[in-house]
Design a protein around this nucleic acid. Structure first.
Length: 764
DNA sequence: CGAAAGGCTCTTTTT
DNA sequence: GAGCCTTTCG
């Protein structure tokens, strides 16, 4: 099969563009991943580039994995030689390999946000800075952005102007010292330290430049200064840097992503070739048009003209719910209806929201309606308390200098080493510049002797001695044990197993998570023993939300708008379409932030292939109390005629919710256009009449694909095609309540009964 | 020291 | 409404 088969002219151009800097501006659904993978395949197969010389960088492991899978299909075994990974993982691998050049232990651990926060807190305590005035979170985010911009503590303190910044500068300096003492790097360090390595070791950089003659970067609009510096360094020699991105989908500026990287890119590489991918293969014309309506209200953007050959599709549904519970049950019932009548499966659906807290009401409704769902984000597996505890034990065994890990587990389960004791230990560690572990050892061995380290009660001393002895025992045995065995032994010796299994259901659940971790650990046993533990701990830390998402698994996906970037679903609900939520209230006084909210909304809308629902509630409980929000201003930017404003789009939406007896039904049975042409806010256009206390009868579903008629369009024997089910033959067809119900025998999927107004059924 | 209870403050998004 | 921190009591 030709590599160029089935590509449009722009895609083809991007795939075969000659070596040299290349910027691919790719609109949503324009076949971006396809272009990257085909370009790599083209390099290997047509230009004879050794796969070892190609590096592709993504933002999530999931994107990396997907890319690898697709490449395996394209180039077979050659894919094995490629370097494909996230920025963080790629930098981490390089740093472990080259650690000795910058005085770093190759066994460094990676601190996630939890660990970072504990470290900042201990710094604040040590420097006697009031947490009330300088929140640990605030300090951390300041430090994080400094690192993302490659400013070390010294540079930061020079640049510091306000009192606040001066304080943060002191915290930053000490924080960095402690990281180093603990043998740890945080997320941001992975990038900044890699850049530093290359900057201070030209010969190392040259080796990597020589090796990686071709670089490809996905989601370039979300790179920060450090990531861009890394790309520039690596690509500095051969200049074969291909970056792919879409400024309209830049949604991570709060994590220091800088759209200006795209502009800088053009300046840094004057001979840059630019390819625009503007044809959308994903969404219906209606959805694409709505998306463009929303995004074009941003002032600071280059306008693109996206287009599609896809059918226009049905209208977008806009539904006003009474509160978040009705919102959730509306979503649940729509899905239920479409799954039983519309020929959709649960996995075709995704419900997207601005903040993770919004998933709660949805989960409740889904459980009530017994609809299976897959929750992305929320409390992740690797962030569960018991999982983090176990990982901390393993970290401590791998790297006894890791003070954050020690502080986490030293009294978990409780073993008589409380805050006061630890404060004393911390004092010793700080005083002597040694690790917490070393300080415990010192305290135990020196207590009561001349020049004693501390005055400890004998009970406390015994507790510490017991802990020390236990850890020393594990440390001695660890070299002979695999990860799994070490984990088992640690669970016993530390008493953690007995601690978790406390007889409650919750305890059993937590123990299952521990077992799950054990299963993951098993997968690392085939690795080289010296690095297996490092890899295991690293991957546990660098795992991202979407990485755990299994598309093939049945169930509705619940996901934040941020995490949904890069995904697509036949049917998408965006809930909480309210001013204050989407856009989030934090963006109200910042035009740039508001533009980002709009991009976020745009990202959400463009995830939808066939159907889109935008849902808002007139009131909802927010942070514990009731708030009343206006419909999102973004709704008013959807061009007129694309949406049904009463939520009538799909199923029996007006059925009373069994969850809430008092829940009112639909406001008005007749569809109204949304919004009014003058683009005023929804509420001003269509003032909401008081909602009736009883629900109205459900209106007949609105046909999307066909006009209503008394005669069935399909007859037994007709050959048909359905995007999800493939080819089939009509078995029977009859009119039901103004809708045509077609029974089709699909070649692959068996017999399905479809409602024609909802099933995208075509004649084949 | 540890468990339990009550009060406090915030919550955007995450590699 | 939840998680975090502080307080209180055994």
């Amino acid at each position: 099969m030709s590599l160029l088969e089935g590509l449009n002219p722009a895609q083809r151009e991007a795939v075969i563009a000659p070596s040299g800097p290349l910027l691919i501006l790719a609109g949503p659904g324009s076949g971006k991943t396809r272009v990257i993978t085909h370009r790599i395949a083209n390099l290997i197969q047509r230009e004879g580039v050794n796969p070892h010389r190609i590096m592709a960088v993504t933002f999530t492991n999931k994107a990396a994995t997907e890319m690898k899978v697709r490449l395996s299909k394209l180039v077979g075994r050659d894919a094995e030689g490629l370097t494909v990974g996230t920025f963080h993982a790629t930098c981490s691998r390089i740093l472990r390999r080259e650690a000795d050049h910058i005085g770093l232990s190759p066994h460094f651990v990676i601190y996630d946000e939890d660990d970072q926060l504990s470290l900042v807190k201990s710094v604040l305590k040590e420097l006697e800075i009031d947490e009330k005035r300088f929140s640990p979170r605030g300090c951390l985010s300041e430090i994080s952005s400094a690192k993302s911009e490659l400013r070390d503590p010294l540079q930061y303190s020079e640049f510091a102007q306000s009192y606040r910044q001066e304080v943060v500068a002191r915290v930053y300096r000490r924080y960095q010292e402690l990281l180093s003492q603990n043998g740890a790097l945080d997320f941001d360090d992975l990038l900044a330290t890699a850049v530093e390595l290359f900057r201070t070791n030209p010969e190392v950089l040259e080796r990597y430049q020589e090796r990686y003659q071709h670089l490809l970067v996905d989601e370039f609009q979300d790179t920060n200064v450090a990531q861009y510096a890394f790309v520039r360094q690596l690509g500095g020699k051969h200049r074969n840097v291909c970056v792919v991105g879409d400024p309209d989908q830049s949604i991570y500026s709060w994590r220091s992503a800088d759209i200006r990287n795209i502009l800088n890119f053009e300046q840094d590489y004057p001979d840059l070739k630019v390819v625009l991918l503007e044809q959308n293969y994903r969404s219906t014309g209606t959805i694409l048009e709505a998306a463009q309506g929303v995004i074009s209200a941003n002032t600071k953007r280059k306008s693109k003209k996206l287009w599609t050959e896809n059918p226009r599709g049905g209208p977008i549904a806009i539904f006003e719910a009474y509160n978040e519970e009705e919102e959730a049950s509306y979503v649940a019932r729509e899905i239920e209806w479409l799954v039983s009548h519309g020929g959709h499966r649960l996995r075709d659906f995704s419900v997207m929201y601005r903040t993770n807290a919004q998933s709660r009401a949805l989960e409740k409704a889904f459980r009530y309606y017994t609809i299976r769902y897959k929750l992305v984000g929320g409390v992740r597996f690797y962030e569960r308390r018991e999982v983090k505890d176990i990982l901390a034990y393993l970290r401590l065994l791998q790297n006894p200098a890791d003070g954050v890990a020690l502080a986490r587990v030293v009294n978990m389960p409780p073993r008589g080493i409380g805050d006061r004791t630890m404060a004393e230990i911390e004092r010793i560690a700080e005083q002597r510049g040694i690790s917490l572990f070393g300080a415990i050892r010192a305290a135990v061995s020196e207590n009561g002797t001349a020049g004693k380290a501390a005055q400890l009660a004998s009970r406390v001393r015994n507790s510490l001695a017991a802990f020390l002895e236990m850890m020393d025992g594990l440390l001695q045995e660890k070299s002979e044990l695999g990860i799994e065995q070490l984990l088992d032994l640690a669970l016993e010796r530390t008493g953690y197993r007995a601690f978790v299994l406390d007889g409650t259901d919750e305890g059993r659940e937590r123990w299952e998570n521990v077992q799950e971790l054990r299963t993951v650990a098993k997968e690392y046993e085939h690795l080289v023993p010296e690095t297996a533990m490092d890899m295991f701990l690293e991957e546990a830390t660098l795992m991202s939300d979407v990485d755990g998402l299994k598309e093939e698994e049945e169930g509705v996906t619940l996901i934040t708008l941020h995490a949904a970037k890069g995904l697509e679903y036949p049917c998408v609900f965006i809930v909480g379409m309210e001013d204050g939520i989407c856009p989030h209230s934090r963006s109200f006084d910042d035009p740039a932030a508001m533009e980002e909210e709009r991009r976020l909304c745009y990202v959400g809308i463009t995830r939808a292939m066939q159907r889109l629902w935008l849902v808002y509630a007139t009131r909802r409980t927010l942070y514990g109390n009731m708030s009343y929000n206006e419909p999102s201003r973004f709704l008013a930017d959807i061009p007129p005629g694309l949406a049904d404003g009463n939520g009538a789009h799909a199923a029996g939406t007006a059925r009373p919710s069994p969850l809430h007896v008092s829940s009112p039904g639909r406001r008005s049975p007749e569809p109204r256009s949304w919004p009014a042409p003058n683009g005023k806010k929804a509420q001003e256009i269509a003032p909401t009449p008081p909602r009736p206390r009883t629900s109205l009868p459900p209106p007949a579903p609105q046909p999307l694909a066909t006009p209503r008629s008394a005669e069935p369009q399909f007859r037994p024997g007709d050959r048909v095609y359905h995007p999800a089910f493939g080819n089939g033959v009509v078995v029977s067809s009859q009119m039901q309540r103004g809708d045509e119900e077609v029974t089709v025998a699909f070649e692959q999927r068996g017999v399905k009964k479809l409602a024609l107004s909802f099933a995208p059924l075509q004649r084949a």
